[in-house]
């Protein structure tokens, strides 16, 4: 309870003003947000920077943010007690082990399934890690497995442009830019093999990137 209160305050007074005043967001496809906020959803996006997560969370109001959990690597975000406390409490992450030791799917995705069944949403980056130069790497199939286990939960493909300039991987100095977020129509798991469904999600994200291509050189 206290943790949720802290997260609410943290987003209302620190993260939101920072994202909207210091940075800035242009949203395309905002009409889907309303629907997404009402029901548990799986938000799937490309990943270039830590800023991605803050941007996605800030699309929703502070009350809704409490019900959205970014899925994050346990070995990176929870390797010390302090980090675990900060990221779990303030950002609300669900830690996920990246080193799969053939554990059963049910066991591995237990926290995620519980969250979705409890009416909460998750953010997942199927690339598995942050990429560089705004390239979309191949998607790992975890997201499809989650969708398979929760077929009634919509998967929302999202393309984020900009954070690779704001705070690219391997830097600590941020530079202000306006980020663009493109949201596509939610899709549902359709009984295809998970590999095929993973590809389908990736195609949707790439389609968004292609549709809104900016000039890359002067």
């Amino acid at each position: 309870m206290f943790g949720k209160f802290l997260r609410y305050i943290f987003f209302l007074f620190i993260i939101k003003p920072f994202i909207y005043l210091v940075l800035g967001v242009n949203v395309t496809g905002a009409e889907y947000l309303h629907k997404i906020a009402k029901q548990p959803s799986i938000l799937v996006a490309n990943h270039n920077s830590h800023v991605d997560t803050l941007l996605l969370l800030c699309l929703f109001n502070c009350h809704q943010i409490l019900k959205i959990h970014p899925v994050a690597a346990a070995d990176y975000f929870c390797n010390t007690k302090l980090k675990a406390f900060i990221f779990k409490t303030l950002i609300g992450i669900i830690p996920l082990s990246r080193k799969v030791k053939k554990a059963s799917e049910e066991e591995l995705f237990k926290d995620i399934n519980n969250a979705l069944k409890g009416g909460e949403s998750i953010i997942i980056y199927p690339e598995g890690t942050r990429g560089e130069d705004n390239q979309i790497k191949s998607f790992k199939s975890g997201v499809a497995h989650i969708a398979k286990m929760n077929p009634s939960v919509p998967v929302v493909p999202i393309y984020i442009n900009g954070p690779d300039r704001i705070l690219p991987k391997g830097t600590i100095l941020g530079v202000p830019f306006i980020a663009d977020i493109y949201i596509s129509k939610p899709i549902y798991y359709d009984d295809t093999p998970t590999k095929v469904f993973t590809e389908r999600i990736k195609t949707e994200v790439e389609k968004l990137k292609e549709e809104h291509k900016r000039k890359e050189e002067l």
């Binding site: 940075l23 800035g24 300039r165 830097t171 100095l173 530079v175 830019f177 000039k215 050189e217």
Partner: peptide
Amino acid sequence: YLCLKEFLSLIPTRKTDRKVLLWAY
């Protein structure tokens, strides 16, 4: 600040220019 940020977001920038942009700000 808002104008400059908008302008810089509009144009393609090189990765090596990130620190130069901070000087512009």
